[in-house]
């Protein structure tokens, strides 16, 4: 075998080895801040590993999935930049309303301050304001009232200096009850506006 052919063989076999090793992949389940049960399945072909404990990890190579214990230090070293770029968790608030009116109840006025703090934390906040009613009255009346309640909330934000184009206002009438009731039932917990800050 001449030199060129030998070199070509070495290059080819190295390339093959690299191709066979394939990309090295790692997965680690993190602790859930809310404390709820979490789990992740890692599947490759017919092989599957279940990760169900905090810092349970899996390495995936060509033709193999292998469980391994990771830890907070390893996660920080390897994923620190990705974790640092995590957006703020979206937050939801609920404001309650006086029966048949578009006025907040008194404790809801204080919640509005909390909403404003969350908006201010975000460089680009999307805000969704979704109005609801209880089941007293017709669909037409409740659709209008739910929309009106949501508009009141938007007006409160605008009055505090939130740019108006960041708020989406929706009225759902009595279609999505927080507390299921029959028709024509006065229920304070259904007279609400939900606010999502994302």
């Amino acid at each position: 075998m001449n030199k060129a052919a030998r070199q070509a063989l070495i290059v080819t076999s190295t390339a093959l080895l690299v191709a066979c090793a394939g990309p090295k992949e790692t997965v680690v389940l993190l602790p859930s801040p809310s404390g709820q049960d979490t789990a992740l399945t890692v599947t490759q072909g017919s092989r599957q590993v279940l990760l169900a404990q905090p810092y349970a990890g899996a390495r995936v190579g060509r033709g193999a999935v292998e469980a391994y214990p990771s830890n907070a230090q390893e996660v920080q070293a390897r994923y620190g930049a990705a974790l640092a770029a995590q957006p703020l968790t979206p937050v939801q608030f609920t404001l309650f309303f006086v029966e048949n009116k578009d006025e907040f109840t008194d404790e809801s006025k204080r919640i509005v301050d909390g909403v404003f703090i969350e908006i201010a934390k975000r460089p680009v906040a999307d805000v969704f304001v979704i109005g609801h009613t209880d089941t007293v009255g017709s669909d037409a009346v409740n659709d209008a009232l739910s929309r009106q309640r949501a508009e009141v909330v938007r007006a409160a934000f605008v009055a505090r200096g939130l740019p108006i184009d960041k708020v989406v206002v929706i009225g759902r009438g009595k279609r999505e009850l927080a507390v299921p009731t029959g028709d024509g039932v006065s229920e304070p917990r259904n007279r609400r506006v939900e606010i999502l800050v994302r």
């Binding site: 090295k24 993190l30 992740l40 060509r62 390897r78």
Partner: peptide
């Protein structure tokens, strides 16, 4: 998905990496 595996998410936080 990663180039060689599929992660099924059941309500969770996790990290994943793919080295070349």
């Amino acid at each position: 998905r990663t180039p060689s595996a599929t992660l099924g998410v059941r309500g969770t936080e996790f990290v994943v990496s793919v080295d070349e």
